[in-house]
Amino acid sequence: MSHTAHIPSHRKPRRSAPKTALRAGVAGGVLSTIAVAGAAGPAQAEPVTRTIEMPTITDGLSTAVAASAQATEQVAQDLRTQAQQDEAATSAAKAAKKAKAEAVRKAEAKKKAEAAAKAKAEAALRASRTQARTTLSAPTGGSPASTAVATSSSSSSSSSSSATGSAASVVSFVKAQVGDAYVSGGTGPNSWDCSGLVQAAFRTVGVDLPRISQAQSTAGTQVSLSNLQPGDILYWGGAGSAYHVAVYVGGGEFVGAQNSSTGVVQRSLSYDPPSGAVRVL
């Protein structure tokens, strides 16, 4: 064989440097290629390229971001709602406190006004009685009222012991209250005003009189002061507009709840001459 004959080479063939290209999907749909080159061998050989398609993660990421944003918004909404509720509760508490203070102020003002009106009415009543007494007891040559009282005082001393039946019960009741206190609006059992005492006395015998002096002064038959009987109702002022009442007990005397200074007293007709009288029994 010729020395020039072709002898197969025992050299190992060169290996081409493989390259693997990874085409991966990234956020936003942009594809990038990653080339991995072999560590050995020259670069003249034709590279072998493989392309791997990687799934994109945009959809899953967007869903997660959206869910997180929704949760954040819900928390914010809950916080706003709670803040509004707290503010409303605070406003309601302030309004309730203000309303309570206003109610207390009005109640105190009303109480003071009622006390002032009561004091004014009592002062007016005392002034009216004083004026009436001054007029009735003035020396005018013998007024009809003074003459009637004097006549009644002299002629009724014998009738004091003649009270019987219901009249005797009325007289006994009012005499038993002598010494009790006078209180405006009082109806017993230990304090009275004038009409309250008269009403209670007649109630013991089953007679239901009106509550106030004006009505009591017209509750029965008008009688002359010169013809009084025990149990008659005496009044001061006009019939139907009387400002004071008492019960005639005979002997020229009456029992009545006079005022806060004297209370319930038994007095002579001349002490405070009445204007008129009515007979109920």
Rank of each mutant, 00 (worst) to 15 (best):
T81W: 14
G142R: 11
V36F: 10
F202Q: 07
Q266C: 13
A43N: 12
N259A: 06
G188F: 09
S161I: 11
S68L: 09
A27V: 12
R211G: 03
E102S: 13
T58K: 15
T164Q: 06
V205A: 04
A257Y: 01
A138P: 01
A43V: 12
Y182S: 03
R23G: 06
A127I: 09
V30S: 10
P189Q: 13
N259H: 02
A219N: 11
V171G: 03
V223L: 05
A116S: 14
N227V: 01
S62Q: 11
A103Q: 03
S68V: 05
R15V: 06
E73F: 09
R211I: 00
Q266R: 14
Q214T: 15
A88D: 12
N259P: 04
T204Y: 04
S158N: 07
F202V: 05
S195E: 04
R80W: 02
Q131K: 15
L234V: 06
D272T: 09
K94P: 01
V174M: 04
T204V: 12
T134H: 08
A167V: 03
L61W: 09
P189N: 12
V149C: 07
R133G: 07
P18V: 14
A71C: 00
A76D: 02
R11H: 07
S217A: 15
A181H: 03
S2C: 01
A71P: 00
A109I: 01
W192F: 04
I7Y: 04
M54L: 13
T81V: 14
R267P: 00
A145R: 15
A95M: 07
P42C: 09
G41L: 00
A167Y: 01
A148Y: 05
G60F: 08
D59E: 13
G188T: 11
T134L: 04
K106L: 07
V265P: 02
R14Q: 08
R211F: 00
M54S: 14
I212Q: 06
Q266T: 06
S16V: 10
S166P: 06
R129P: 02
N227D: 14
V30A: 15
T147A: 14
D86W: 10
D78G: 15
E102N: 14
S224F: 00
T140E: 08
R126D: 06
Q74P: 01
A35W: 08
